[in-house]
Simulated scan of single mutants.
Amino acid sequence: MSTNSAKQAIRKTYLAKRKALSPEAFRQLNNALLEQCRHLDLGDPAYIHLFLPIAARNEVDTWPLADQLRERFPEATLVLSRSFIATGDMQHFAWTAGTTLAENALGIPEPENGEPVQPAQLDVVFVPLLAFDAAGHRVGYGKGMYDGFLRQCRPGVRTVGLSLFGPLEAPVADAWDGDVPLHSVVTPEKVYYFTDTKNE
């Protein structure tokens, strides 16, 4: 099976797994994941990039995580992206009380206005994914937008995946040079670390 076919099979499997979750099962997994997020060592970040969920796809509900981060890091600025699917580009904006959000064509809430933030300013980036392996390679939706975005971030930025499920049993097949491995992934059971740290 080719790399593309393997990743497509993983995407199909994990989209189906998320879709099959009952509302109660999803709530329990999401709450447990959010509790694990409290154990993350994020340093003293000034800018934290967050994604907001596609509710129709049972993505991790990060709205409560935003509240948690504001509580833990009151001086930090939360940052959201606006995606341009046709070009693969992303623009990033400070998320403040004055930010207007609107869903894009994929159902992702995005900022319509705000102060621009450059990728090099970011200290922490929370990353959406469908699945991940024991080396920190992620399988996303296949458009490569986050890999391109993460390559623009400064060395040392903390990249944190959020997953309702544990790691794949086998490595993501032939992860290519453009893939950007994650520093850690939070699941409902534990936090996995992949860079210079041991798994908790």
Score class of each variant (00 low, 15 high):
Arg151Asp: 12
Thr3Ala: 15
Pro167Ala: 04
Leu101Thr: 11
Arg27Asp: 13
Gln36Tyr: 04
Phe165Trp: 05
Ser163Ala: 12
Tyr141Leu: 09
Glu59Pro: 03
His183Tyr: 08
Trp176Gln: 13
Val125Pro: 01
Ala66Trp: 04
Gly166Asp: 15
Ala134Arg: 14
Thr62Ala: 09
Glu103Phe: 08
Lys19Leu: 10
Val180Ser: 03
Arg57Asn: 13
Arg151Glu: 12
Glu115Thr: 09
Gln152Phe: 02
Ala32Phe: 01
Glu71Pro: 05
His49Trp: 09
Gly144Tyr: 10
Pro74Arg: 05
Val185Gln: 00
Gly88Ser: 06
Glu189Ser: 15
Ile48Arg: 02
Leu15Phe: 09
Glu71Arg: 10
Ala66Ser: 12
Gln91Ala: 15
Leu130Pro: 07
Arg18Thr: 02
Val186Met: 06
Thr3Leu: 14
Phe84Trp: 07
Asp67Leu: 12
Ser22Pro: 07
Gln152Asn: 03
Pro23Gly: 10
Lys143Val: 06
Gly107Asp: 10
Asn31Asp: 13
Asn4Cys: 15
Phe73Arg: 00
Ser83Cys: 14
Ala120Cys: 08
Thr195Arg: 15
Leu52Val: 03
Leu101Asp: 11
Ile85Met: 13
Phe132Tyr: 00
Lys143Leu: 10
Gln121Val: 11
Arg138Leu: 12
Pro53Val: 05
Asp179Lys: 04
Asp123Ser: 07
Asp174Arg: 13
Arg18Cys: 04
Val160Glu: 00
Ser184Cys: 13
Gly144Ser: 11
Gly98Val: 07
Leu52Glu: 02
Met90His: 07
Asn113Ser: 12
Val172Glu: 00
Thr159Met: 06
Pro181Glu: 08
Lys12Arg: 15
Phe165Arg: 02
Ala173Thr: 11
Asp177Pro: 04
Pro155Val: 02
Leu21Gln: 03
Thr195Pro: 04
Arg138Pro: 11
Pro128Leu: 03
Ser81Gly: 04
Ala86Val: 08
Asn113Met: 06
Asp67Thr: 09
Gly178Ala: 11
Thr187Asp: 06
His137Phe: 15
Leu33Arg: 04
Arg11Cys: 10
Val139Cys: 03
Arg11Glu: 11
Ile85Pro: 07
Leu42Glu: 08
Ala170Ile: 09
Gly140Ala: 05
Leu101Pro: 08
Arg27Ser: 14
Gly140Asp: 02
Ala86His: 07
Trp95His: 14
Tyr141Gly: 03
Tyr146Arg: 01
Ala131Pro: 02
Thr13Gly: 06
Asp179Ser: 02
Phe194Gln: 00
Gly43Lys: 01
Ser5His: 14
Arg72Cys: 03
Val186Thr: 06
Lys17Thr: 07
Gly114Tyr: 00
Ala86Asn: 07
Asp196Leu: 08
Leu34Arg: 02
Ser5Trp: 13
Val124His: 12
Asp177Thr: 12
Val185Asn: 00
Lys19Cys: 13
Asn58Ala: 14
Ala9Arg: 15
Asp67Met: 09
Leu106Gln: 10
Thr100Tyr: 11
Ala25Cys: 11
Gly98Leu: 11
Arg82Asp: 07
Thr13Pro: 05
Arg158Met: 03
Leu80Ala: 04
Asn30Val: 06
Ala86Trp: 01
Lys7Trp: 10
Asn31Lys: 12
Leu130Phe: 08
Phe149Gly: 00
Trp176Cys: 14
Gly98Arg: 11
